[in-house]
Amino acid sequence: MGDYSIDIKNLSKTFSFHEKETSIAKKLASLVTKAKKNRVLSDINLQINKGEVIGIIGKNGSGKSTLLKLILGVIEPDEGSSMKTDGKILRLALGLGFDMNLTARDNIYVNGAILGMSFKTIGKAFNDIINFAEIENFVDTPLKFFSSGMRSRLSFAIAIHAEADIYLIDEFFGDVGDEIFKQKSQKAFENNLLSGKTILLVSHSLETIYELSDRVYVLKEGSGKMFEDVDAAIEYYLN
């Protein structure tokens, strides 16, 4: 692996599927007929160094989510693809596994455990999480009584305590609350996660990509191109 955190060569992904049939006869026929194929990613080559922040941009349907799933190992690439990763990978998405019927306290433990934190670590970070999310008076209130802003703040506060070597961050700053909290979040994100960790940052917010990325990978209709210059990447993406 050398200094690469992620090393991808000739990675392609084709999905096989049957059309959703409505008649019983067609449904039964689909059991034996050949599936249709859709190539979502084609010959992706991507080498990411340890500690780098790579912005990934592309229109909806360009293959961003599929690429993240492949890196995480949820699905398998096509034959002939090569992918090596070094270290524990975590995809950070806000509100992972939140249960509206459970209290904030319960959700912190569940969410923290899902994000790879031990109960001991969660216990140590508990007060920080509560304070950061500004929900000191609602620790034992079920989440269904929280405003969407409170839920987003709590979710963010837990996520920045997650422990991994490679983070796949998908629209993380989309809805974390008002402008003041957004600035606070960005600062916490930079302090907690931008410290030597490898990050793949997927976002439609070009402002976020511009501010945080070392390099930018642009996906267009399943093919990708890496840009050292963030401005050039954004220009290529917009055109």
């Binding site: 433990y109 569940v110 455990a113 031990s118 109960f119």
Partner: peptide
């Protein structure tokens, strides 16, 4: 301390509670 065991236990506990 074992995160894997803790995660299994916490998910089970929450499922049961829910």
């Amino acid at each position: 301390e074992n995160n894997r065991f803790e995660r299994i236990w916490k998910l089970a506990q929450v499922d049961f509670k829910k």
